[in-house]
């Protein structure tokens, strides 16, 4: 379980995250929801130590984060753009002891990627698939996905969504931020709704659907008054 406990982050005079606490369970998909600028990406980056929190703690299964067990997939490539996909893979193989080349080969095959392609020649959708393939091939217990559907075409989106319900994601905890909630709503187990740097609501998506007959978007509409 990822535990985010009382984290705070201030940028200059603006308190972007104010005392946020939540958990993301292994084997579940937890979705961080919020309008633009509510601090979703900052929380993911904070968990990974890329934008350190001013206060608060992050624990993964009760211990400080182990980067062998948690993978972060941002909405852009983190490799130099002149790299080919196979160069990215070589780097991952070299530096991540848990990286599984067979798993990566399977994902390359499923996503119909060409290893000799350079990152700067890829469309945004293909780049998103490469990022995801590299992240999953790390074989992490937890996967942090920042806007994986941002700006990508409908077919790439479908392929990625299919992946979430495949055996490749079994037993992994997924913490995801997205604006395309409709596309993954039926896959999400838990939603954490942020508003102005605070947690506005935290709910079991299935409960809300069956008990109150509401979708995530309905709850968002109530919360944000949209």
């Amino acid at each position: 379980m990822i535990e985010v406990l009382g984290v705070k982050k201030r940028y200059r005079k603006k308190q972007v995250i104010e005392d946020v606490s939540f958990t993301a369970q292994k084997g579940e998909i937890t979705c961080l929801i919020g309008l633009n600028g509510t601090g979703k990406s900052t929380i993911l980056k904070g968990i990974m130590g890329l934008t350190p929190f001013d206060q608060g703690t992050v624990l993964v299964d009760g211990k400080p984060i182990d980067l062998n067990r948690v993978a972060f997939v941002p909405d852009h490539s983190t490799f130099p753009i002149h790299f080919t996909i196979e160069q990215c893979e070589a780097f991952m193989r070299d530096f991540y002891p848990t990286f599984d080349p067979k798993l990566f080969a399977r994902l390359v095959d499923e996503f119909k990627l060409f290893p000799e392609d350079k990152l700067n020649e890829l469309s945004k959708g293909t780049l998103a698939k490469v990022n995801l393939a590299l992240g999953i091939a790390q074989d992490p217990d937890y996967l942090l996905l920042d806007e994986p559907f941002s700006g990508i075409d409908v077919f790439s989106k479908e392929q990625i969504v299919e992946l979430f319900s495949s055996d490749l994601m079994e037993d992994r905890g997924v913490l995801i931020t997205t604006h395309e909630i409709e596309d993954i709503e039926y896959l999400v187990d838990k939603a954490v709704m942020l508003n102005r740097g605070r947690i506005a609501r935290e709910f079991d998506v299935e409960d809300v659907r069956f008990i109150h007959g509401k979708s995530i978007v309905d709850v968002m509409r109530e919360e944000y008054g949209a």
Partner: peptide, 15 residues
């Protein structure tokens, strides 16, 4: 350099 900073990858290496 750029948006897709390689630093992000380096800082998340398990080392």
């Amino acid at each position: 350099w750029g948006r897709g900073t390689f630093m992000m990858r380096l800082l998340t290496l398990p080392t």
